[in-house]
Computed example of a mutant assay.
Amino acid sequence: MRIGELARRVGVSTRALRYYEQRGLIRSRRSANGYREYDESDVRIVTEIRELMSVGFTLEDARPFVDCLRSGHPSGGSCPESVAVYRRKLAEIDREIRDLLARRSEVAAQFADACPGCLLRRGES
């Protein structure tokens, strides 16, 4: 399939697909007239990349998932390298949550000091 069809099927721009190709995440063949041609497997690969990016993974994070799919696994997350990326990402998110909770506690304390007797409204606690 040509780049426009792949872009429509996965809901991304052709520019994004060219960038993924430049980064080595997808591969195209060139037809006789120079058009990029993609395989059906590229639909699954680009879908995997987009799903990972939608929850905060980077393109580099997606590389082991893509490699896993290319090696024939039904899921990009089933290879040891992908599992390691999941673990690292979860640890990163946990750190961010701890940091946010600490910042929230500090702001709540400052608010309590600045406005004794003020109550946080529902949803602000």
Rank of each mutant, 00 (worst) to 15 (best):
I93F: 10
E40V: 12
A32T: 06
R104I: 03
S31I: 07
V55A: 05
P80A: 15
D94H: 07
I49T: 01
E37Q: 12
A62P: 00
L90D: 07
R8N: 11
R63V: 03
A84Q: 14
R8I: 02
Y86I: 15
F65S: 12
E81S: 15
G76Y: 12
R103G: 14
E60N: 03
R8P: 05
R27L: 11
L25C: 06
A108Y: 08
L100T: 07
T58D: 06
G34A: 04
I49A: 05
E40D: 15
A91P: 06
A102T: 09
S105H: 12
G77R: 09
R30H: 09
G24H: 02
L90N: 08
G56V: 13
R8F: 08
A32H: 10
S13T: 11
E51L: 11
R70H: 09
Q22L: 03
T14F: 06
A102V: 06
R29D: 13
E37N: 09
S71P: 04
A62E: 00
D113C: 02
M53I: 11
L25T: 04
I26Q: 04
R70M: 09
D113G: 10
G77P: 12
S31G: 14
R87Y: 02
R18I: 01
G56E: 04
R9M: 12
E81N: 11
D61F: 06
R8E: 12
E106D: 09
E60I: 00
L90G: 05
Q22M: 02
Y35S: 10
Q110V: 06
E51Y: 04
E40P: 13
A112T: 13
L25N: 08
R103V: 01
L90H: 12
R63Y: 00
Y19L: 05
R44T: 14
L52C: 10
S13M: 04
I49P: 01
I49F: 02
G76F: 09
R87T: 09
E92K: 10
S41N: 14
R98S: 10
Y86E: 13
K89N: 10
E96D: 11
R63M: 05
G56R: 04
N33W: 10
A112H: 05
Y86C: 11
P64A: 04
Y35M: 06
G24V: 08
E40S: 11
S105V: 00
S105D: 14
R36E: 02
V107G: 08
L25S: 04
L100I: 07
R95G: 08
A84T: 13
V43S: 07
I45D: 12
R87C: 09
P74L: 14
S31K: 12
R103F: 08
R98N: 10
V107T: 12
L25V: 03
E48K: 13
A112E: 12
V85L: 10
S78Y: 09
V10N: 01
G11H: 06
A109G: 05
L52Q: 01
A112W: 03
L59A: 00
A16I: 03
L59Y: 03
P74S: 14
R18G: 09
R9W: 08
S71V: 08
R30M: 08
G72A: 05
S41T: 13
